[in-house]
Structure formats: structure tokens, C-alpha cells
Simulated scan of single mutants.
Amino acid sequence: MRINNDLGAVINHFLPALLQKRGLTSHQLKVLRALSTCRTTKLGGSAMVCHDCGNLHYVLHSCRNRHCPRCQGIDKELWIEDRKQDLLPVKYYHVVFTVPHDLLELFRFNRKVMYNLLFEKAWETIGVFSKDPKLMGAQPGAIAVLHTWDQQLGFHPHVHMIIPAGGIDKQGCWKSTKQEGDFLFDVKQLSEVFSARFARKLRRLKRQGKIKKFVPRDLIKKPWVVYAKQAFGSPESVVEYLGRYSHRVAISNHRILKVTSTHVTFSWLNRKAGYLKETKRLTGVEFLELFLEHIVPPSFQRIRHMGFLSNRNKRESIEKIREQLLRDYVTRPRLSRAEVLTLRFGERSVLQCRECGGELLLLESYPKERAPPEYRCA
């Protein structure tokens, strides 16, 4: 038996067997059901008519769930367009904070607390170095994104941070980092400060009864990994690169290569072998169990703007920085949703007629679990 090679079809086929094997939280079940019904008649749809040629088009509604590989493509493009309005004419750095495997069980049983702790201490570490007068002497800014997976869908919590090469001092003036080269700060020193502060706060949370499960005594016996990538070539390349991380989900549909009645085969990149593409075959239930690891808690904020790039301070801060760095800076016009969709899907977006390219107008929306209505041309 052959099944469509997409996540929704995998969930539809293997969810009953998964429920027989184990229980799910209401949130996990809600996410899986949303993904399994995305762009099907179960969510309803809309009938669109072309303004120019009169052709009818039916558009199925999306689930808009942040774990859905189908929905994140459009959301990513819209998010990228917003971030382009925030670009500064400076160098940007990419820093990744991760934790030892010894802590993975703590993360599994205390996801929200531990994810928040990871964000908090990663940002605190960047602040320690940025506020040092010898390095920068200013408040930094950052866009941080939580990921919880590796290429083989293993549980691997880590935070990506994109950081401008400078900050705002107490007088509101821009100060560029004093570091030269392609890396923001010394990686070894970042690791030492990050691990020490993370471990200290974790022990305090355990004493306060906010952490379940055993906390290892010697948390910093082994070196923690803080990974710094080379600086970006241009501010514009930052946003495109960020888009690859911001709305990425644990697995995209194009990586699902084959689905049978019993197994799922997907591709992954082996970084240790020079990013060689390999395949992995799992039973359908094993595949869904791995996917469950990467469903974040309800209402959890997976993308965060920090420092002078925080939502509260961003607009005013960016205007002041641009005035100081580039007085004749011209803000790039913001594209409309239709223009973004056109760029995303080529010459004709989902808002254009597939026959003539004319504008599509809404004729009727039909509710969930109802087939598209039949229309007869006059």
C-alpha cells in the first residue's frame, strides 16, 4: 500500500496505531489532528472566481499551525518581509547555544521551564560580553529562534541567535563591537559563562520545586557547546538566512521520500560526512513518536526579539541607530501580502487565476466537512 509522501498523510494513516501504543496530551493530539486535516475538505475552503475570464477555483483552507510544513512556507515569507524593515547597515553574527546530552531528560519532562531557561541564559551570556567596555560596552540586540531537532529527528534543543555587530550605550549612542574578524566573541569563553550560569539557575529551580526529575550534580564537567558561525556577507543575506531557521519545522514534506502501510523513509544530511544526503527508515509509529518530541508547549514563544530589537524598543531604537550610522538611509517599501505571495510562488500567486493570471475574487466560503459547492456557468 502506497500513501502520499507528506506529513498529513503519515499522521492520518499511523495515528490510530500510535494511540493504541501510548497516550497523548490534548495539545499533542490537537496539533496532529490539525496537521492531518490541513488543506482538506475537513477544514473547509473557498470558491474563487476570476475577475477577467470567469473561471472558478477552489482553495482549501490551511490549518495555520506552526508545526505544519505546508503552512510555514507562506508565514516564513511574510515574516522575512517584516524583518527586512529592521535591517541595519552593519555586520551580523550567528551564535548557537546548545546543552549536553545529560540534560535531555530534564528538557523532556520540563519543556517550558527548560526552554525558557535556555533562552534566558543564552541572552544573559551575550549581555555579559557585550556590556564589557573592552569588547563593546553597550546593550546588544538579537533575534533568537528555538529548535529542538537534529537531522534525524532526534531531540536536540538549541537556540540560534542572530546578533548585530554593536549595541546602544547608556547615552543612546551606537557602539560597534571592538572584535575584529568573523566571530562575535571568543567561543570558549562564551561556553564557560553560559554553562556556569545555566547550571546555577537550574539548581535554584530544582530547590524551588519547579524542576521534575533528577538534576546531575556535575553539570559542567564536560565542555558545553556554543557554536559561532562566520559573519554574514551583507545585511540582506541575514534575513534570507534567518528565514531558513525561523519557521522551520522538524521535518519538511520534501524530505519524506516514501510512505508504505508500515514504514516511513526520509532523507537527512550527514554533516560529519560533508553534508552527504542519506536516508532513514522507521516504522510509522516510531516516526510519529519522534515528531511528538518537537511539539512545543501551548502558547510558547519560539521566536524572540531581544535587547534593542525587542518589540517594545525596536522601532525607536532602529531609527536612532540609522540616523547615526547612515543619515541618508532610505527605508525599503513594505510589500503587500499579495506581492509577497507572488514572489514566493512565481509569476502567479494563489491569488491569481491559473488560466489567465487575473485577480481572484471570493465567491463563497464553505465550512468544515463540506465539499465544494457546484456552480453552473450562465
Rank of each mutant, 00 (worst) to 15 (best):
R334W: 14
T279H: 13
R255A: 05
A47W: 10
L351K: 12
L362Y: 01
L219Q: 06
E124L: 11
C53V: 04
P69L: 00
P216D: 04
F107W: 03
E289T: 09
I251W: 04
S317Q: 03
L106V: 01
F97A: 01
H147N: 02
R302M: 06
K131G: 08
S246G: 15
S176K: 04
V59W: 07
V259C: 07
K42S: 13
A47I: 11
L78G: 05
L88Y: 01
I256D: 02
R322W: 06
K188S: 10
L343P: 06
E355C: 12
D102H: 11
S252H: 08
T331W: 01
G346E: 09
T25M: 13
D102K: 07
M1T: 12
P69K: 00
P235H: 00
G23I: 05
G44R: 08
R203Y: 10
K314M: 09
R111E: 08
L292R: 00
S26G: 14
R108M: 01
I163D: 01
C356S: 11
I143W: 04
L29S: 14
Y115M: 10
G243W: 03
W268P: 07
K30C: 09
D182I: 11
L282V: 12
T342V: 07
H247F: 07
I3Y: 11
E374C: 15
V128P: 09
R197D: 08
L15R: 12
C353N: 09
A378K: 15
R255C: 08
H254P: 07
D182K: 05
K91S: 10
G54K: 08
Q352E: 14
